[in-house]
Design a protein around this nucleic acid. Sequence first.
DNA 1: AATGAATGAGCTTTCATTCAT
DNA 2: GATGAATGAAAGCTCATTCAT
Lengths: 198, 198, 198, 198
Amino acid sequence: MNEKFYSLKKEKQDKMINGAMQIFARYGYRHASTDEMVRVCGVSKGLWFHYFENKPGLYSFVASYGLKYAMLELSMHQIKNGTDYFSVRYSIEECKMVMMEKYPYLPLFLYSILREEDPDVSELIKEPRQKYAEALSKIMLQADYSALRDHEDYLLLTDMLDYTIEALMNDSYRSPVFAPERYLMEVKKHLSAMEKLL
Amino acid sequence: MNEKFYSLKKEKQDKMINGAMQIFARYGYRHASTDEMVRVCGVSKGLWFHYFENKPGLYSFVASYGLKYAMLELSMHQIKNGTDYFSVRYSIEECKMVMMEKYPYLPLFLYSILREEDPDVSELIKEPRQKYAEALSKIMLQADYSALRDHEDYLLLTDMLDYTIEALMNDSYRSPVFAPERYLMEVKKHLSAMEKLL
Amino acid sequence: MNEKFYSLKKEKQDKMINGAMQIFARYGYRHASTDEMVRVCGVSKGLWFHYFENKPGLYSFVASYGLKYAMLELSMHQIKNGTDYFSVRYSIEECKMVMMEKYPYLPLFLYSILREEDPDVSELIKEPRQKYAEALSKIMLQADYSALRDHEDYLLLTDMLDYTIEALMNDSYRSPVFAPERYLMEVKKHLSAMEKLL
Amino acid sequence: MNEKFYSLKKEKQDKMINGAMQIFARYGYRHASTDEMVRVCGVSKGLWFHYFENKPGLYSFVASYGLKYAMLELSMHQIKNGTDYFSVRYSIEECKMVMMEKYPYLPLFLYSILREEDPDVSELIKEPRQKYAEALSKIMLQADYSALRDHEDYLLLTDMLDYTIEALMNDSYRSPVFAPERYLMEVKKHLSAMEKLL
DNA sequence: AATGAATGAGCTTTCATTCAT
DNA sequence: GATGAATGAAAGCTCATTCAT
């Protein structure tokens, strides 16, 4: 089924992917309406169902696509400025900002996928979602945890950072225009605060 | 408007409140359907609108009711086993488990209220939501922060704990049967882990 | 069935009749809601159905009652100021203003009954409606038609007057407060205009 | 919004317009149900809302359309048999019978539009309704009023004729089959009666 | 007698999905 | 491949009517 889609012009593919990402990311699976996707990307209603059997099919495609694309970008992204935990964690967020050039709503969409619990799709996206989580973990595991390692149960600390960063991301998208630099600055501030603690 | 509802038999009031809480907590405001409330608590469709002007009216009533009930329970709940931050934080979760005896979905609903952003209701519940948040803060402020106070930006640490507890709660409701003891054990484990760190 | 109603205190009877008349007259049969009757006259919902089997039953009762009451008033009303057609026609409108003392919406209701075409009730009220029309005709036939009689098909002229008077009545009720004197003045003006023509 | 509708096949457009006209004309705005339109013209429920935002939108479209169509027919209609008031008045009714070939309920609908007072739509149709009234006035003003002009307050006479004609129209639609010839004969009879009087 | 809680059919409207062109 | 007209199930809500108290 997806081969058909891939034989479209890349430009149109991305127009549709961006339209779906935006609506899914902002409203969640169930609340995203096909009419709104038509509105934001100008591709006719029938075409969505021509390429994707139904709404779950569309969601699972776009989610898988987005997760894979994110993993690709992550794998290509050079980690600069040191390999300690905090630098690596920050570097991932920098990488997300790069993704935005092609798929502006992808960073928000990635979080919404991880939180999506609608029974119609949660099973469908289980696997790519998990792989993405593992890819992130893998990158993080390559980091230098010397600053944290001494603490028994230090995973809780890293979880806290993850939650904080997610909240900052959500706030950023809520503002009229997403400003990547401002977002990155906020992330850095919070990471440093934690770093100082240890 | 609400006087009518309060003149119902308490038993029926609670049946309706529980029905609404369950559906609102699980699906969020917009996705909660009256039909489903009819299904889970056997009260006819028309009756919901006999007592509550419309869906926002119902939501704001049940949310206010739930928040007030939670505050009442919190105010009555004796804090045992010390007044240090971690004991108090745990005590609040114990208290939530008590609420469940009357309103099984209330703890989950409380979180969903705090996250609810639907423009149709967010303004309506602003005040009680804030009061509840303040009540929780007040309880926490009476705790002994000596273990945390020394850390600059220690608020980040407490936020992390809040996020963690919320996630554990969500996980608990996702399992076929909510097991309060198991939940409390998980909370205790995580709190202790953090405590040890300091 | 109506005996039950008649055994109520006259005061309450009239309260209910006035409530029903007001709502039926202003909104027509189908658009009149029992809830609104409850609101305007404070008599509980169940009672309406206790005395009147259903909505058509209520309508047919109140319509018959109103028509009969109007006929009674008409039969008792002394015609002053001459017996020529125009004086008699005016006198009928004076009589309607008298009815308003007990049933403020009756004059409007009488017209709305004549125009009511809802299939649920049109058959039910056919007879009293016709009797009322005949009673009016009878009164008019006793008038002195010497000013009109010479005209072949003079009935058309009288129809026109009837339509004009109905329109004036409707306009009067539409104003915030119905002012009987103002209404009667308008009627007189129009009748005189026609009189001059002949 | 209406461009979408106009791009439909003319045949289907007219099927929908006729369905809406029939139901609106017979029951008035508020009492006209989309279900009944579905029944009389076989076009599915959802489609009405695909083309028209909501019920007021549908009403205002069909009303404007009907009024414009009527004005067009009136402007094209040749007035035969003299230009005196009575001939012109009769000619308008002939013209309405022509409209019926395409839109059988249009003549009845035109009257119901002029009487429509539902607050949801009265403002929406104010302008076309007024234009139609003006167009009719304009036609009538070109008539030869020499037979009427001498009478002070002769406007009352013309109003009476208008009321009479409207009543005849309503009666005609109430009969099982609308018979245009019969209707026209009745109109002619009444007009002549008045004419003789002057 | 009197109340108003309770019901369910029916209303307007939305939306995923199908299908003719 | 591409469109958008067309469908119908389901949503929130209204209202005549029933029924327990």
